[in-house]
Amino acid sequence: MTQTAQFRAALAALIPRMRRFARALTGNVADADDLVQDTLERALTRQAQWREGTRLDSWVFRIAQNLWIDRTRSRRVRGEVSDEEALLAAPGFDGRAAAEARDQLDKVRKAMAAMSEEQRVVVGLVLIEGYSYREAADIIGAPEGTVTSRLFRARAVLDQAFAEEIAR
């Protein structure tokens, strides 16, 4: 196989994880897959910028989160629908789940919707994709302390979502 064929095969293998991460950021299937599509496109056009021997997955997730943060910022500037509304309205989760599991999913969805974009990125990278704080810091291009503080605040949002459900 040529180098390009290997690169394409490696990207193809990452698609399921990219879709999971993108779903965490966008909250719905259509926006998530659009984001994955744009990410793949950028990865292919910028293949030369990826240094062999470094992790392709980290590089691709960095592209995805940059695209998403840029997009949400420009959307906010244009005064479009808030992300929270979009998330709450979006059929992003599996409807076949049993009642108890659905209740859990509902909490997760509400909590994700209530987070800032930056918090959601860190939750996606660390709690869903399983990156270490250090790796997540490299991906978002920020100090490790920033990851910790964003995650800590995101945990507080999760705490609240889960506590409200219990209080009912």
């Binding site: 193809a12 994880r17 879709r19 999971r20 897959d33 599509q37 599996d94 859990q104 869903i128």
Partner: peptide, 28 residues
């Protein structure tokens, strides 16, 4: 919470990947 997040998002890994995404990185 960590467990609930994984339970919510892990099933996406098993989903069918849409053709438009697969086609993008199909071998040339």
């Amino acid at each position: 919470q960590s467990q609930a997040l994984r339970a919510a998002f892990d099933p996406i890994l098993e989903e069918h990947v849409p053709e438009r995404l697969r086609a993008q990185v199909a071998p040339q």
